[in-house]
Amino acid sequence: MKLTLILLAVVAVGQLGIPGYMIHRQEQTLREGRAYKFKTAPVDPYDAFRGRYVALRYAQDHAAWTGTNVVRRMPAFATVVEGTDGFAVVSELALTRPAAGDFLRVMVHYSGWGTNAGMAYFTLPFDRYYMEETKAPMAERAYWDNNRRGQTNLNTYALVRIRQGHGVLEELFVDGRPIRDVVRERQKEP
C-alpha cells in the first residue's frame, strides 16, 4: 500500500504538471511576449451559434510561401511584423523556423493561384474567445455588428502576445474597447 501511495504521489505530480505547464507557458507569454494587434475579418452573420465562445476570423488569411508543395493542415512558421497602420502582418510563411524576429506556428492549408500565386493560405492558432455562457452570444453579436462586410472603419482586433513562436490571445477589442466592457454596457441597456 505504501508503494502504491508513493506511486500515486508521483502520478499526481505528473498529471498536475500537464495543466501546470500549460498555465506556465501562457502566463510567461502574456508577461514577456510582445503585443500584436491582429485585425479580425468580416464574418458571416449566419454562422452557427457557438454559445460559449466567439468564433474569430482574421483579415489576413494568406501570405508569401517559401516552402514546396502545400498539404492540407501542414504546420508552418509565420513571420510576424507590425505594419505601418499598427496592425500585425504575416510577412512570410516557411517550413523552417525564422532566424530572427517574432513568429508563430500556424497551419497552412492550400496554395494560392492566379494573382495569389506564390502565396499560401493559413489559419492562426487562436480562433476562439471563450466567455461566460450568458455573455458569449451577446459578445458574438457585438463582434458581428462590427465585422460586417462593407464596413471599413473598424478598430476591431485581437490582442495577441507572442514569445518564441507561442501566441496567447490576451483580449478581444471591438471598436477599440475590450469586448467585456462592450458586453457589460449592452447588458445594462433595456
Binding site: Q15, I18, P19, M22, I23, Q26, Y53, P125, F126, D127, R128, Y129, Y130, V168, L169
Partner: peptide
C-alpha cells in the same frame, strides 16, 4: 477530472 482540468485551462487562456 483529467480531461476537465486540461480543457478548463484551455478555456481560461483561449487556447483553440
Amino acid at each position: 477530472a483529467i480531461g476537465a482540468s486540461i480543457s478548463l485551462v484551455a478555456q481560461t487562456y483561449h487556447i483553440s
